[in-house]
Design a binder for these strands. Sequence first.
DNA 1: CGGGATCCTTGACGATACTG
DNA 2: CAGTATCGTCAAGGATCCCG
Lengths: 217, 217
Amino acid sequence: MHSTYGQFCPVALGAEVFAERWTPLILRELLHGSHRFNDLHRGLPRISRALLAQRLAALERAGLLERRAGPEYHLTDAGEALGPVVDALGHWGYRFAATELRAEHLDAGLLMWFIRRRLRTENLPADRTVVRFQFRPPSRPPLFWLILRQPDTDLCVTDPGLDVDLYVDADLRSMAQVFLGLLSLPAALRDGGVELTGATPLRRAFPSWLGVSPFAA
Amino acid sequence: MHSTYGQFCPVALGAEVFAERWTPLILRELLHGSHRFNDLHRGLPRISRALLAQRLAALERAGLLERRAGPEYHLTDAGEALGPVVDALGHWGYRFAATELRAEHLDAGLLMWFIRRRLRTENLPADRTVVRFQFRPPSRPPLFWLILRQPDTDLCVTDPGLDVDLYVDADLRSMAQVFLGLLSLPAALRDGGVELTGATPLRRAFPSWLGVSPFAA
DNA sequence: CGGGATCCTTGACGATACTG
DNA sequence: CAGTATCGTCAAGGATCCCG
């Protein structure tokens, strides 16, 4: 298959660069602020590194992306202009597909990576706070540590050896639904989908710094 | 490759159904009013019929499309809701890709099919009018006949054996640019990109019933 | 017109190893 | 950290024929 559709129709021209496998997700990552190769890969855990490199090269050739020192990948104006397409696709997915998440779509590591990126840092506790997440059914890896410290935060998948201030035990599907804004956090706490263990002020503050997906209504 | 990205992100969920090869163009055809298998195929001449059938079945399984009697294919509500995504993609393509059309994107048969679909029928001549198109460089097929007769019009690629009322000789790229609204018809007539031969009233009326792409500014 | 069945090729992709 | 190189596999899809 050539990558061209052989059509001058603008939809076809757009689809030639946009509608290739992984490309919409790569654009999502770039639009949401990931610029380093490994950061991009953390948001796309199922793509092979070889393929990611290949796609980035293709996007660069297409003039959507430029490599800068670092190396960092930044969208060009033409690349940024695909933002509305990614948004429209995301809104459709939110409305018509996200309501019935299948098990194969649930990925604890990805959820944690998204949560980390959407933290409402202005609401984080003043002191360093260690939050440990554990999911049902057990995920791989089984535990995640979020180390909250203004202004930067760390996400670990191996025990950082620090005292844990707040424990989050959650059904993976419920936590994903909360992140997507499809399930309110109070409701999840009430029905046991999400359980918090720790000092009351920390439990109280949790909803204020936990962010939601950019596509949440 | 499984067709899933293994992500609950709405962009990934949307991309699973939308960003597969040919799918955006199939949706374009359905959104622009083609509902029969062969009509769809005329708007997608480079897809094999087997693959088109396969994609239609996949869209039906995904709940975007329903088969009706005829057989006709009609988008469901979820399918129609992808209209904004197709539009956004088309607008991007119009702005960033259509200005530099490569020869491999120029397809005379497809252009004629698009022209036929976008005819401004309310401005057609009152009497039956036969218009013959010929392109430079020579296309395959080399000639097209548009038989204008209210309210239906026919597009032929073999001589219908009727007297021709208006001859259109055009550079293929120029004609495509005119259809896309990237080149004004008066300018194309002036510089020879499009030449008309026929009675003056018919030559005068031509610009009034020749339509333009839905993505033209 | 509207496809289904079959065969066969190509290239897309994953896995692994390696490098600066 | 940030990739490249190599190789083997598998499946997507083109071509062709056929059928109701």
